[in-house]
Structures are given as C-alpha cells and as structure tokens.
Simulated assay, not measured.
Amino acid sequence: MDQPDFEQMRRRLAELKSEHRDLDDVISHLVETRPFDQLQLQRLKKRKLALKDQILKLEDALLPDIIA
C-alpha cells in the first residue's frame, strides 16, 4: 500500500468516526425529546451501525497483518 492510499484511508476513517459521533449526539437528542419519531430513530441507528462496520473494515485494512 503506497503512502497516498494510506493517508486517504486515514482521512476517510477520521471522517467516518466524526460522523458516527455526530449521529450518536443526534440520537441522544432525539430520544430526549418527547414524542420522537420511532422510524427516524431506527434509520439513524441503522446508519450508525453501517458506519461502525465501515470503520472496523478500514481499521482492519490499516493494521498490518501480524504473523503469530
């Protein structure tokens, strides 16, 4: 993996983590307001889970394989 790809992946990882944190804040705020839209909450949680999956894949790709 050459350096530009590595840096691009790190930037994308930072963006995904930021969006994940932002969604966490939005979800928390939504739950605190009554009544809240259950469908909107489910969609936000689904998006947050998808982001988490993308984050894990990128982190795995960035970590070098360790031969045990």
Rank of each mutant, 00 (worst) to 15 (best):
D65M: 09
R34S: 14
L63W: 05
V26F: 03
D25K: 13
I55L: 05
Q40S: 01
H20D: 06
K46I: 11
K45H: 03
A68E: 12
E32K: 15
P64L: 14
L16I: 14
A61C: 06
L30C: 03
L56C: 09
I67A: 14
D60I: 02
Q40R: 12
I66F: 14
L62V: 03
L63D: 06
E32L: 12
L16H: 00
R47I: 03
I66Y: 02
D37V: 13
D22I: 10
H29A: 15
L58T: 05
R11K: 15
R43S: 10
P4K: 15
R11D: 13
L41A: 09
H20I: 04
K45D: 00
R21L: 08
D5Y: 09
A61T: 00
R10P: 01
R47N: 04
K57M: 07
L23W: 07
R12I: 03
Q8I: 09
L13Q: 01
T33N: 12
R12K: 14
A61E: 07
L16P: 00
D5M: 04
Q3F: 07
E59C: 13
L41G: 03
R11A: 10
Q42I: 13
I66G: 04
M9H: 00
R21V: 05
M1L: 11
D25R: 13
D24R: 14
K52C: 02
E19S: 11
L62S: 04
A14P: 06
R11Q: 15
V26M: 09
A68K: 03
